[in-house]
């Protein structure tokens, strides 16, 4: 489903990614581990077209990221859900409205939104917070709203960039459990993190990145840095 071929990316003169080769199969759950600045986020940014690669190629299904037109990026982004460490919810909107926002953008009708949003909130276990604002929720709940929003377009791929970075252990575990559940329902998940104990519990494929290069690949792996 995703194919990185000899991908190289520079930031000014700094080589952020160096000759990355990676194949991700449909329905996989992959943990990208490594220290801050290792290049995890850059890999995710390349996948949504936020950054352009300097050498090599990336294929998502049969879409070549080096050839995609700028005007087609929005449609690609509707197929890829993204979750961040800093959550990025709209503070003046309720959980429902934050999720609905994503559906409004792509021109869904009010009826569709009223039908789908409660289902998605139920999936992330936040039915009871439907009409609460972000400041009335815990960090984990907020992140689950963000995950719900990223699911609004029924993405085939979910990218999570340090989603547990600002959360305590219990909340972090909840978020990881949710990602695993989403993965079980068929969505490919790419989780970038440096939280070793969480990765050890997941027991899925682990890719370790150091200094912009893949240094280790393990099936059912552990965090070894």
């Amino acid at each position: 489903m995703i194919e990185f071929k000899k991908v190289t990316k520079y930031y000014n003169n700094h080589k952020a990614l160096n000759n990355i080769n990676l194949h991700v199969k449909q329905g996989e759950f992959i943990s990208l581990v490594g220290m801050s600045g290792a290049g995890k986020s850059t890999m995710l940014k390349l996948l949504v077209g936020e950054e352009q690669l300097d050498d090599g190629s990336i294929l998502i299904d049969d879409i070549d990221m080096t050839k995609i037109r700028k005007s087609d990026l929005p449609y690609l982004r509707r197929k890829i859900g993204v979750v961040f460490q800093d959550i990025k919810l709209l503070p003046k909107r309720t959980a429902f409205e934050n999720v609905a926002f994503a559906m409004e953008v792509s021109g869904h009708t009010k009826e569709q939104i009223n039908k789908d949003v409660p289902r998605i909130l139920e999936l992330v276990g936040l039915t009871h917070k439907t009409h609460n604002f972000p400041h009335e929720m815990s960090g984990g709940e907020k992140q689950r709203v963000a995950i719900a929003r990223s699911l609004a377009h029924r993405p085939v791929l979910l990218l999570a960039d340090e989603p547990t970075g600002n959360l305590d252990e219990i909340n972090a575990a909840e978020v990881i459990d949710l990602l695993l559940k989403i993965n079980e329902l068929g969505t490919t998940v790419l989780l970038a993190t440096h939280a070793s104990d969480l990765v050890n519990k997941i027991k899925k494929r682990v890719i370790t990145i150091e200094g912009g290069q893949i240094t280790m690949e393990q099936e059912k792996g552990k965090y070894k840095l």
Binding site: S71, P74, R77, V82, L90, F101, A102, V105, H153
Partner: peptide, 8 residues
């Protein structure tokens, strides 16, 4: 966020 969720 609009960009993120695929607004044209």
């Amino acid at each position: 966020i609009m960009r993120l969720v695929g607004a044209t």
